[in-house]
């Protein structure tokens, strides 16, 4: 009877499947596990990438670390679950990941159809086109007949189809799975154009040997509000992710930085005191320690610091704040009050 142990095993996994698939209690699961599983991309410079020692860095990864700092008190306790454009929501919905920080656009169908919870926009983006200067193209309207590398399973794939259809142009779609594949095919000349979020284009271009020979065309053909996502059915966990992001924005607005966060604990501004857990019981209400936001800023930094460190003007990616400046500086980054 050789099959018996296997049968029992599969029965056990199925039964376990029910427990781990259960929705509430993500916070408890994470705390029991002692580490946070974040769904991130397979690799986009500046947003999510590994260094020589295999450690994860980037804008998205830093937000993952901020979440870990708030929940576990330690920004190092993360595990990156890499995902292509196509696998990311399945990984999240099957509880392989606790939260998704992966340049993911908020759309109606993902919110309502795929049943995700979104928590605000940590990067305002739009879709652009990257071409080699040698092509002599200055506008996306001149791309009729071109071959276009496009990541499958993304919003950008749909925007591309819409844009060419609306402008009565034809193109050869060269579908690719990951950003790295896109880069290789583009550099080898399999496609004339690489299209994705403009931030992703800038990040990808920064890895070329001759970045100056490639331009991003002026047309931005879509709105790509990128933000974190969680599963339906765990409101406490959703609140935590939402306010982790807002904590970084409020900290920047109030001038709380990694360097001065300890001094700020004796600030005269009551909102800063509430944020850092000196006053009030906001941490407790979230189910977290009182110093949850303090840990975020101490260990990872505020929104501006995260931006500048990973993708800002002084990095190889070189993105301006633009729409992502604080609302007080003409941008769209705006946090509801900590009250």
């Amino acid at each position: 009877m050789k099959f018996k142990p296997t049968l029992i095993l599969s029965a056990a996994t199925l039964a376990l499947g029910i427990t781990s698939g259960a929705q509430a209690g993500t916070l408890e699961d994470v705390q029991k596990r002692g580490s946070l599983n974040c769904v991130v991309s397979t690799g986009v410079p500046g947003f999510a990438y590994t260094d020589e020692s295999g450690e994860w860095h980037g804008f998205d990864v830093d937000f993952c670390r901020a979440t870990a700092a708030a929940v576990l008190g330690d920004a190092k306790k993360i595990k990156a679950v890499t995902s292509t454009g196509k696998t990311r929501f399945t990984l999240l919905n099957s509880a392989e990941g606790d939260v998704l920080w992966r340049n993911t656009t908020i759309t109606f169908s993902r919110d309502v159809g795929v049943k995700l919870r979104f928590h605000g926009v940590n990067y305002y983006d739009g879709q652009g086109f990257l071409v080699s200067k040698d092509l002599g193209v200055n506008s996306a309207k001149e791309l009729d007949g071109a071959s276009v590398c496009i990541q499958t399973g993304t919003t950008t794939e749909l925007n591309l189809a819409d844009y060419f259809f609306a402008n009565g142009m034809k193109y050869e779609a060269v579908p690719i799975e990951t950003n790295d594949e896109g880069r290789q095919n583009y550099l080898a000349g399999r496609c004339d154009v690489y299209t994705t979020d403009a931030s992703g284009l800038a990040a990808t271009r920064s890895t070329f040997t001759d970045p100056a020979n490639h331009i991003i065309l002026p047309e931005i053909i879509s709105k790509e509000p990128l933000g974190p996502a969680t599963r339906h059915g765990d409101d406490q966990w959703s609140d935590i992710v939402t306010w982790v992001y807002y904590a970084t924005v409020t900290a920047e607005e109030k001038g709380v930085t990694q360097a001065n966060v300890d001094e700020m604990k004796s600030s005269k501004d009551p909102e800063i005191l509430r944020l850092l857990g000196v006053e009030g019981n906001q941490g407790e209400e979230l189910g977290l320690p009182a110093d949850w936001a303090y840990q975020i800023i101490k260990q990872v930094g505020n929104y501006g610091e995260i931006f500048d460190r990973n993708i800002g003007p002084n990095t190889p990616i070189g993105l301006e704040r633009g729409l992502n400046a604080l609302w007080t500086e003409g941008g769209l980054q705006y946090s509801p009050p900590f009250r």
Binding site: G85, K86, F89, S109, R110, G113, V114, K115, T152, G153, E157, L158, V174, P175, I176, E177
Partner: peptide, 21 residues
């Protein structure tokens, strides 16, 4: 799917899956 040839896995089992959830 590894090289982007649009077979049944890449179409209905790939992009359609992703775009509809």
């Amino acid at each position: 799917i590894a090289i982007g040839y649009m077979d049944v896995v890449a179409t209905i089992g790939g992009i359609s899956l992703m775009q509809t959830g």
